[in-house]
Amino acid sequence: MAATTYELAAFGLFAAVTVGASLGVVLVRDVWHSALLLGIALLSVAIHFVMLRAEFVAAMQILVYVGGVLILISFAVMLVRRGSDDPSLSTSPQLKLGSHLWRGLGAVALFAVLAVVSLRAALGAATGFPSGASITASIGVAMFALSGAGVPSETFLVAFEIIDVVLVAALVAAVMLARRESGGRLAAIGREVDDS
C-alpha cells in the first residue's frame, strides 16, 4: 500500500511544524516562548499519531502532555520569573562560536549517525493493522493481559502496576522537594529564602 500524495503532503507539512517548533524550543530567548513552542511541537506530534492510526495515544498525548506536563512547566516558568527583564530568563542563546560550535556539531553528528542507520535498516514487509479490529479496545486488552485482542500485542499487566507505584512515588517526591526542611513548616514556593 503506497502512500498517496495527500498523505505525503500532510506528513511533510506537520513534520515541518514539528521540526520548526522543536528548533524554536531550544533557540528562542524567552523561556515562556519556549514553553508555548513546546506545546505546538507536542500537538503536531499528536497529529502524527493520528496519521499512524494511534488515535487513543494521540488523545493521551494531548491530555497528558499538553494538559498536564505543559501546564506544570508553565507554572514553573511563572514561579521562577522575577520580572520581564530578568536576566536569568535569557541566559542563552548567546551562541558562542567556540564551545557551542562543537556541541552543535556533536548534535548534527548524532543526527547523521541516526539517519544513516535509519536509511540502511532492512525493515521487512509492512503488515499493517488487521482491518475491522478496534485498536483502542486492543490496547486495553494488552494492558490488562485479558484475552480477545483483535490486534496482536504483548501483555503489560506487571508494567502497568509498576508504573502505578512509580507515579505515586514521583508525586510524593515532588511534594517532598517543594516543602522547606527547616522548622518543619511548608515553604512558600518561589519566594526567596532569607534564612538559608
Binding site: 499512524l52 502532555y65 499493517g128 485498536i135 490496547i139 485482542a149 512509580v166 514521583a170
Partner: peptide, 26 residues
C-alpha cells in the same frame, strides 16, 4: 507499531507518557 501491525509499540508509548509525567513532576 503501525508498520508491523502490532500494538506493543502503542502500549509502550503510553507507558513512556506516564513516566514522562512522573519525570516532569520531580
Amino acid at each position: 507499531s503501525q508498520f508491523y501491525g502490532n500494538l506493543t509499540g502503542q502500549t509502550f508509548a503510553l507507558f513512556t507518557m506516564a513516566l514522562a509525567a512522573a519525570e516532569v513532576a520531580v
